[in-house]
Design a protein around this nucleic acid. Structure first.
Lengths: 212, 212
DNA sequence: ACCTGAACACCGTTCAAGT
DNA sequence: ACCTGAACACCGTTCAAGT
């Protein structure tokens, strides 16, 4: 029989002991390695377990099914991105609109490119995962932080800050994703930093009234 | 043994006779139906064949493997989008920059939302497909048409039209994709038409020098 | 010539048997 | 208590046997 829905994506047991934590970490890392070295088609539970040096049975003690392996990697990545946006929101609060936009875009790109290899690999398998709940939760964190940031601009006021934040974030995430799915050279990333900043600044200028 | 790489994604034989063409069409349609009705996990070759009223063996006469089923649906959708962009490029050539941007964005959104259900379902399975070659080919068509369009603007000249086109298209495709992956209401689509047009116009204004 | 579906080589997941 | 890996229920794909 197939796995029934809905699926629990958390590890089966919390790694309370240091030995267990290391094992979970090893399995997760082995999963990334197999994915990058052999491709998504050859990422199987047996191969990941073998690479991690444990039996399939042991692996299933820590991860209830294959999806959970990748889910854990994805979760860490997305949480780092959300945290970067929240940090940018705090850091650039009250600045002029152009300054905060520059900061937000570049901190976001930093977070996305920090572990570019893993996040690129994740895009390859992301659709095999049921990420609806995870994505929703993290999108909400990012959305809240962005609205707080935009609302604090020293020199501009928004007519519809919710729509502006939604559009801004859709453009940022979508553009980065499009770039990652193609071949990404450092030169591309650099050009995109400038262009995406320019685009977001130009858009937000149009979506605001100047203050004073 | 697994399917060897690289994979041929074309149908095994051309449907020369009307009866065969109808059969291929039926199998493709059955595939979409199973996908939408039962979800990606339950889309199996046997189920798709059964729904189409043929045996697995017969299906494999027309589609060399499971990927080819979805590949065909994806190809049709992406070709319609490329065609829409090319049509917009021809139609708005020589117009003012703001007019052509409005036209391009809205024709693009039209094409993406035309068969929204199928394209949404496709995003769910797109990563199981090896779409690199297909995507590359169609991205190039879209890129060429966009550069031709932007280069013909009556009232503006670009410093770096290649970079502008790349950024514009990355923002357009990425934003639409982000929207499709969340829940999409007609109100959302409507709001995004306005905002995305505004954003692209604002960006392109900054990326050009006015003429005359 | 075209269709069928049992057979084959996997894969994800479980659980009796070991330590 | 924790680990192992053969066993089970699938799935994608093939091909001998039918029409």
């Amino acid at each position: 029989m197939n796995v029934p829905h809905p699926i629990a994506l958390k590890p089966r047991k919390a790694p309370v002991q240091a030995r267990s934590a290391a094992k979970v970490e090893g399995i997760t890392e082995a999963t990334i390695q197999v994915l990058l070295a052999e491709g998504p088609r050859r990422l199987t539970t047996t191969r990941a377990a073998q690479r991690a040096g444990v039996s399939v049975g042991t692996m299933y003690q820590y991860f209830p099914h294959k999806e959970a392996l990748l889910y854990d990697v994805l979760r860490r990545h997305l949480e780092a991105v959300a945290q970067a946006v929240e940090a940018a929101s705090a850091r650039y609060r009250g600045q002029p609109l152009a300054t905060m936009t520059d900061g937000l875009v570049n901190r976001y790109i930093d977070a996305k490119t920090a572990r570019a290899d893993a996040s690129r690999a994740l895009y390859l398998v992301a659709s095999e995962l049921d990420t609806t709940a995870l994505m929703g939760r993290l999108r909400e964190r990012i959305r809240t932080a962005t609205i707080a940031l935009l609302g604090s601009a020293a020199d501009a006021e928004f007519d519809d800050i919710e729509t502006a934040a939604f559009t801004l974030l859709a453009a940022m995430t979508g553009t980065l994703r499009t770039m990652f799915e193609q071949d990404t050279t450092p030169a591309h990333v650099h050009a995109l930093r400038t262009q995406l900043t320019l685009m977001c600044q130009a858009y937000l200028e149009k979506a605001t009234r100047p203050m004073r």
